[in-house]
Write a protein that binds this DNA or RNA. Structure first.
Lengths: 228, 228, 228, 228
DNA sequence: AATGAATGAGGATTCATTCAT
DNA sequence: TATGAATGAATCCTCATTCAT
């Protein structure tokens, strides 16, 4: 299995006019942290460049040294947590001795919940901030990437065969995503009942597209010599 | 069975400060038509009071005679089409001689598609306009109402029993909604494959919560003395 | 002879999005007066919307009620004085018992000087403010109009015949304009010697394109029953 | 006759804080070439330090190593072409066997046209870029210098006598300049008719200030032992 | 009921220029 | 000499909404 998303999920190239490498690490992080705090407190819609700059203790103009524009800050924020999300999913899946559609779905979705719990800002940005167009698009795009990765995993391991269309995988991810949005809408911890139902829902759907082995289980591939 | 939503779907009471009766019918319709056209052409985000007023040929200030605020226009627009949606769903369901979870889900979802095809503005507002906070909330609320109605129908007809939790019904509706969002994202007619998958997905999920009769079928209740 | 410019010189229609009639006279004048004062004091380049608004005692937003944008204010300012300029030219020309190229040129150019003396802001805007693109364009356009009007006069009265090309008239006006720019560059009253030279220059040039009568003189047409 | 302008036309001393010698020739030229290209493509107003730096492939900060500030780049650009202009005028004038006011004016003005044709960037900067304050001032200043030089030539050769005031010479140059601005406003090649008229105009004016010999002709001074 | 007029309240960006290294 | 990084300082403009009439 490979990374959930290719590299740390690079945002649309066109957008990133600012050389990421060049960013002064510490200050950039300060800006992101400040933005995250503001988002948790007031929501994505209320975020303004001045608020971020003030909270981070940098001039507004410096924001534009590190980020292409305001939305780029938001996307960087999403990127940061999403990278962690990807890692969590990967490492959790790696612990499974036996893979089934059900166990993969459950493990993946619980990994999401784990990160949501750890990152309140991510809940605000990723689950509740979708009214922001940039985040909306980012969400679609990332879901597409996740779907592709998980589909690849399923094909590699034999949980599914080529008959598993890409749009089916995407639908599963999108739908799981919506379950989380619902579960975390008013509840910072996520309504457990809704999370359970979400897992059941996605599982039920994907089992329809699974191979017999996908339902009964296949051993974790390369158990022992997994790739870095 | 009763109306899919109670009355013509009253938007949050607090919002509607303007007496509906008082509205000068013709002008209100002109405003809504103008807004609908603008939304179809430029999307929900680009809608401004002045644009609406200009397009409708009324002074901006008059908008506030008919609507509480800008978002109220949007909601009225949604209401208008949503009422039609509810009717379509009801009448289509009424034609079913035998109800099953599968047939109810399919009929309902196809009724949605029918209206989406008929109302391009509705696609723009309801499926693509969710970046607007008011519409986002309206969507959640309406989905909740649809879920309640359909759940009531399922309980009445025996497709499901009391064990069918409200949040399960809501999840099904929300998830179906997401399928439509995906299907209509770039395609004004809706990607047929995604629609099919959506139907399959919701059906698979709800059959898990159905009674045996829900899977085999129950006769259309009161077949012969249909509702008004 | 007709008006120097058709109507009060309407600025490019495209620009004027704001209905002039609707403007609350007094406030608009206040804005223009404030802007004029600022221009005289700090020059055209230094003019900002906030400075204008503050000086006029109106909110910045109100500026946009009366004017399409910042440049529109400048153009309105130019319009105001230019209308006066046109009138001065017309009435001064009307007093000439006999018209010659020389007398028309001299009278016209002295009328300009008269208005420049009366309107310091006009000197700043019209003669020194040409670094502003909008004013630059306005200048070209107005010069074109003046040239057309004066050429028409020359043809009507026989000072010149059809051989007087439009671009010749324009060149004469543009060149006279440059003389004024030079004369008033550092001198609020205009360097008299340069003004004289300017008159001589334009006269010498246009006499090359004049009819014999244009050099010897023709009676003021309609002397006695002039047009309204 | 001496150089049209003293040395390579030194821009206002105060401005040039950067030692010319110190400039890394190649990079300086790269910057100027890049700036010239940008000016031709987007006009003077659109020029920014970053655009120049990017196009030239040097860091923005390095610009300040070679030039005092942004406008200094523009002025250096103007200088470069203006030096060529001066040379063209001088060499063209040197070919005249007989000097008259008319031939000097015509030769000079045609030399300008020659260079305008050769240097599109110069047209953009010198003729169309006058909305830039620095260039506006540079223009005035250079015209003054040209006027002084040509007046000196006229006095030396006897085309005019001491009665030819400096401001007369300046007016002639300024007015010729305006003719070019008009001729090249929309036409990269310059409207020939306007150029002709301009020559006629300036000639007609200066002949009023010429000596009889200025009208009939004087031999090219030192024909045979030209200047270095 | 209708509306012309007014405005409060921001908000995102751009850019030339300067230093510390 | 070269330059990556930082930033001070403004600026224009939009828009929803409210009154007085």
């Amino acid at each position: 299995m490979t990374s959930t998303t290719t590299e740390t999920n690079e945002r649309s190239a066109a957008r990133r006019r600012v050389p990421r490498q060049a960013r002064s690490r510490a200050r950039v992080e300060a800006v992101l942290d400040a933005a995250a705090a503001l988002v948790v407190e007031h929501g994505v819609e209320a975020l303004t460049t001045r608020a971020i700059a003030d909270a981070a203790g940098v001039p507004v103009a410096s924001l534009y040294q590190y980020f292409a524009d305001k939305e780029d800050v938001l996307l960087a924020l999403a990127d940061r947590d999403m990278a962690e999300m990807d890692e969590q999913v990967l490492s959790d899946l790696a612990t499974l001795p036996v893979l089934t559609v059900a166990s993969v779905v459950e493990t993946t979705m619980r990994a999401f919940v784990t990160v949501y719990h750890r990152r309140p800002a991510f809940v605000e940005i990723w689950l509740r901030g979708r009214t922001n167009t940039a985040l909306h698009d980012y969400g679609r795009e990332h879901n597409r990437r996740i779907a592709a990765t998980l589909r690849a995993l399923a094909l590699e391991t034999g949980l599914a065969d080529e008959g598993l269309a890409e749009h089916v995988a995407l639908l599963a991810v999108e739908v799981g995503d919506r379950c989380f949005q619902l579960a975390f809408e008013h509840d910072a911890q996520g309504d457990p009942a809704l999370v359970e139902e979400g897992i059941a829902l996605v599982t039920a759907y994907l089992e329809r597209h699974a191979t017999p082995a996908g339902r009964t289980g296949v051993p974790q591939p390369g158990s022992g010599e997994g790739r870095p």
